[in-house]
Computed example of a mutant assay.
Amino acid sequence: MKRHAPATARNSQPLAEVLARELPASGLVLEVASGTGEHAVFMARRFPALDWQPSDCATDALHSVEAWAQDAGLANLRPAIALDAAAGEWPIEAADAVLCVNMVHISPWEATVGLFAGAGRLLPAGAPLIFYGPFIEDGVETAPSNRAFDQSLKARDPRWGLRRVADIDALAISQNLQRTARHEMPANNLVLVYRKH
C-alpha cells in the first residue's frame, strides 16, 4: 500500500541538489528510515550511478517503499530491508554513504546513537553520514514553527523532539565521525554531513 508524505514532494529537489555535492559518484547508499519510499524512488532516479538501499523498522513503511519501487521499476533501487537504527546489529555489512531524512526528531535518542554506531561500522574512511531535518542550534534563533513542532512532538512522546546540533556533533566524535558540512534548507531545515575519519 503506497503512502504519501506531502513534505517529501517539497523537499526532494532541494535535498537532491545538496546530495549531488556530498554523495560519492558511485557505490551503495543506505537510506535509514525510508518512510513512504518516495525519497528512495526520487533519489535512485536522480542518481543512476548509485545503488539505493531503502530501509525502515516499520512494516507498513516497508510495504509502502516496495509499492513505490515496484511502480518505478528502477534497476539501482534495491528491495527495502527491515532495519532498526537502535539495534546493535544491522542486516547490511557495508555502505558508501548513509542518509537519514526526518528521523532523529521522531524517535528516541537511542535511535540516533545507534545510527552513528552503525554508520561507524559500515562506512569507509571519508564516507558521509547525512541528516536532513529540523534541528536546534546554539547561537541561532529557533524558528517559531520549529519551536511549536518540538512541543507537539514531545506531547506525543516525551522521548521525541528536535535535537541540538551540539549534542549530535559530540555523539559523532564518539563514533569517529566529524561534521564537515551544514547546509541551510527550505522550511527551517538543515542538512548536516558527518564523515568517517
Rank of each mutant, 00 (worst) to 15 (best):
A94G: 12
R159S: 14
F135C: 05
N146T: 08
F131N: 08
P79Q: 12
I106T: 14
D138P: 05
W109Y: 13
H105T: 09
A58L: 13
E93S: 15
C100A: 11
L115G: 09
H105Y: 15
I92Q: 00
I136L: 15
T59G: 10
P54T: 11
A58Q: 15
S107D: 12
A44R: 02
A80P: 07
L162W: 01
D51Q: 15
D157L: 04
A58R: 14
R159F: 01
P158K: 11
A69V: 05
G120C: 02
W68R: 04
D60Q: 14
M103P: 02
G126W: 03
P124V: 07
L123Q: 01
A82Y: 04
M103L: 15
G37C: 11
E38P: 09
D96R: 05
F131E: 06
L50N: 06
A143R: 14
L162I: 11
C100D: 10
V65A: 13
L74V: 02
P124T: 03
P124C: 06
P134F: 06
D60I: 04
A49R: 14
Q53F: 00
S64H: 07
D150I: 12
H63R: 14
P144E: 04
T59E: 15
L77Q: 10
G133T: 04
V41A: 08
G139I: 01
A49F: 08
L129Q: 06
G161A: 12
W160H: 12
P54G: 08
E110I: 08
V98P: 00
A69N: 06
A94F: 03
E38S: 01
E110S: 15
R147I: 12
A97M: 09
V41M: 07
R159T: 14
A87T: 03
H63T: 10
L153W: 06
A97R: 05
S55V: 02
L122C: 04
A155S: 14
N102M: 10
S145T: 13
C100K: 03
Q151T: 13
L129F: 07
W90Y: 02
V140G: 07
R159C: 05
N76Q: 13
V104Q: 09
C57K: 12
N102D: 13
R156I: 04
G133Q: 11
I130P: 00
H63Y: 12
K154G: 06
P79L: 07
E38T: 08
G37D: 12
A58C: 08
D96T: 06
G35A: 03
E93K: 15
A40F: 00
A117Y: 10
T59M: 14
P128R: 00
S152L: 12
V140C: 11
F149P: 01
P48K: 06
N146C: 08
E110C: 10
R147V: 14
D56Q: 06
L162R: 06
V41K: 00
G88F: 08
W90C: 03
P134A: 15
D150V: 11
R45E: 15
D96P: 03
L62W: 01
V98F: 00
R46V: 07
